[in-house]
Write a protein that binds this DNA or RNA. Sequence first.
DNA 1: CCACAGGTGTGTC
DNA 2: GACACACCTGTG
Length: 291
Amino acid sequence: MTDLCNKISVSFENDCITLSGLSNFVLSDIFDCGQCFRFNKMKDGSYGGVAYGKYIELSQAGSFVKIKNTEPCDFENIWKDFFDLDFDYEKCISDFNFDKTLTAAAKFAGGIRILHQEHWETLCSFIISQNNNIPRIKKIIETLCRTLGDAVFTDDNGNTYYSFPTAEKILEAGEKTIYGYKTGFRAKYIIDAAKKVVDGTVNFKEIEKMDTDGAIKTLCSIYGVGPKVASCVLLFSFRKYDCFPVDVWVKKILKKYYPEFPGKEYFGQYAGIAQQYLFYYERCQSGVFLN
DNA sequence: CCACAGGTGTGTC
DNA sequence: GACACACCTGTG
């Protein structure tokens, strides 16, 4: 048993980590809110997926979460950070109580954790997401991983899971190949992103150190990356919580609840978390995630 | 056949 | 700057 932040405790047995005492942590909220395209719900209700080259499966019963196929050092080095376990969501939500709509959204979507996903994968995924729908986004990413990624795990049923291909690998495959994976007009965007990441024009280590405005500007130097994609990348993979991605849904929300919206500063330094709560709340209300 | 989906680049005014 | 408009593709 190790003590973590707050009241979370961790135990390990048979390739399984069990977390207990979790709050503001709901697997369906985390994986269905649209921040992540690589984890899928399985028949038994658990979620399986690959991140940082490791395949895990997660199941939840109340404040208990079981992570299958892992070990303590991966939990310490990868998953603790991936699931943002050191961030105090309870306090964040209570700080949102100045706004009625946001409080209602947080009450509904409070199980969301802003994941810390891999940089290149997130950049590439959100380039693919533009003018696209989630099932198709997932399918394209799946094809990329299956054809250009590395096999990282095969389960008892013979299903093999793959890592997300590196920028080098995608560059090597070329635009024509990527286009063949149904990426459409985004193929040239993906290639430009890969080029800039490989040659260092876009340097993730430096982006980490930049303030949000500088980081957005840098990412927007990639052909086909605009403020929406840049904000998603910075929020979902660089943990820049003040990023506030504005897409058609957020536009709808702002029009509906905040006709005189003064700007993202209204929500404060955790505007990105507010955005996720509002986004997920509104989308679920409209029934988009009911499939 | 047509509209639409978690945007962005381009051309026009 | 603030607009339309096209853009690959699958689905309804």
